[in-house]
Simulated assay, not measured.
Amino acid sequence: MTLTLFLEQLINGLQLGTMLFLMASGLTLVFGVMGLINLAHGSFYMVGAYVTALVTVSTGSFLLGLTAGVLAAAGVGALVELIVIRRLYHRPHLDQVLATFALILIFSEGTRWLFGSSPLWLSPPQMLTGFVTLPGGARYPLYRLVIIAVGILVAVGLYLLISRTRLGMRIRAGESDREMIGALGVNIARLYTLIFAMGAALAGLAGAMVGALQSVQVGMGEPVLILAFVVIVIGGIGSIKGALCGAILVGVVDTMGRVFLPAFFRQFMSPAEAAGVGSALAAMLVYILMAIILAFKPKGLFAAHG
Results as ranks from 00 to 15, higher is better:
residue 272 A to V: 08
residue 12 N to G: 05
residue 195 I to M: 07
residue 211 G to I: 08
residue 5 L to F: 15
residue 252 V to H: 03
residue 29 L to P: 10
residue 144 R to F: 02
residue 305 H to M: 15
residue 262 P to W: 08
residue 49 A to M: 00
residue 296 F to T: 15
residue 284 M to T: 09
residue 51 V to D: 06
residue 88 L to D: 02
residue 141 P to H: 08
residue 106 I to T: 13
residue 61 S to F: 09
residue 15 Q to K: 11
residue 214 Q to A: 15
residue 179 E to F: 12
residue 306 G to C: 02
residue 194 L to P: 00
residue 151 G to H: 06
residue 82 L to G: 14
residue 40 A to E: 00
residue 195 I to Q: 08
residue 49 A to S: 06
residue 60 G to M: 02
residue 117 S to W: 12
residue 179 E to N: 11
residue 158 L to K: 13
residue 255 T to E: 06
residue 303 A to I: 10
residue 144 R to G: 03
residue 121 W to V: 15
residue 291 A to V: 09
residue 87 R to F: 08
residue 222 E to L: 03
residue 60 G to F: 06
residue 33 V to S: 03
residue 40 A to C: 00
residue 61 S to T: 11
residue 300 G to P: 14
residue 248 I to F: 08
residue 305 H to W: 13
residue 30 V to F: 01
residue 150 V to Q: 08
residue 118 S to D: 14
residue 52 T to L: 11
residue 14 L to M: 14
residue 123 S to I: 10
residue 210 V to C: 07
residue 185 G to C: 12
residue 226 I to T: 07
residue 75 G to Q: 05
residue 114 L to W: 14
residue 264 F to M: 11
residue 193 T to F: 03
residue 36 L to T: 11
residue 237 I to Q: 02
residue 154 V to C: 12
residue 72 A to H: 04
residue 271 P to V: 08
residue 151 G to R: 10
residue 117 S to K: 08
residue 110 G to F: 07
residue 71 L to T: 05
residue 19 M to Y: 07
residue 243 A to K: 14
residue 26 G to L: 06
residue 295 A to N: 11
residue 291 A to P: 03
residue 19 M to H: 05
residue 256 M to E: 13
residue 194 L to R: 12
residue 135 P to R: 13
residue 170 R to M: 14
residue 233 V to W: 04
residue 234 I to W: 05
residue 138 A to C: 02
residue 133 T to A: 14
residue 150 V to D: 07
residue 90 H to P: 07
residue 38 N to P: 00
residue 88 L to K: 07
residue 81 E to N: 13
residue 184 L to C: 09
residue 98 L to N: 07
residue 170 R to G: 13
residue 71 L to Q: 04
residue 197 A to K: 15
residue 140 Y to S: 14
residue 38 N to S: 01
residue 254 D to H: 10
residue 233 V to M: 10
residue 96 Q to V: 09
residue 158 L to W: 07
residue 156 V to Q: 11
residue 248 I to A: 06
residue 267 Q to D: 10
residue 297 K to G: 02
residue 115 F to C: 08
residue 305 H to N: 15
residue 262 P to I: 00
residue 252 V to W: 06
residue 40 A to H: 04
residue 42 G to E: 02
residue 41 H to D: 05
residue 124 P to I: 06
residue 273 E to P: 03
residue 284 M to V: 11
residue 154 V to H: 12
residue 229 F to P: 06
residue 32 G to D: 05
residue 161 L to D: 05
residue 124 P to V: 12
residue 224 V to N: 00
residue 164 R to T: 00
residue 236 G to E: 02
residue 47 V to A: 11
residue 151 G to T: 12
residue 4 T to A: 15
residue 189 A to P: 04
residue 220 M to P: 00
residue 75 G to I: 13
residue 84 V to D: 01
residue 10 L to D: 06
residue 29 L to D: 07
residue 14 L to E: 00
residue 31 F to L: 08
residue 242 G to A: 05
residue 178 R to G: 13
residue 111 T to A: 15
residue 142 L to E: 12
residue 256 M to V: 05
residue 66 L to T: 02
residue 137 G to K: 02
residue 39 L to Y: 03
residue 224 V to F: 04
residue 211 G to Q: 06
residue 255 T to I: 01
residue 8 E to M: 15
residue 17 G to I: 14
residue 274 A to R: 06
residue 34 M to G: 10
residue 7 L to N: 04
residue 203 A to D: 04
residue 149 A to T: 01
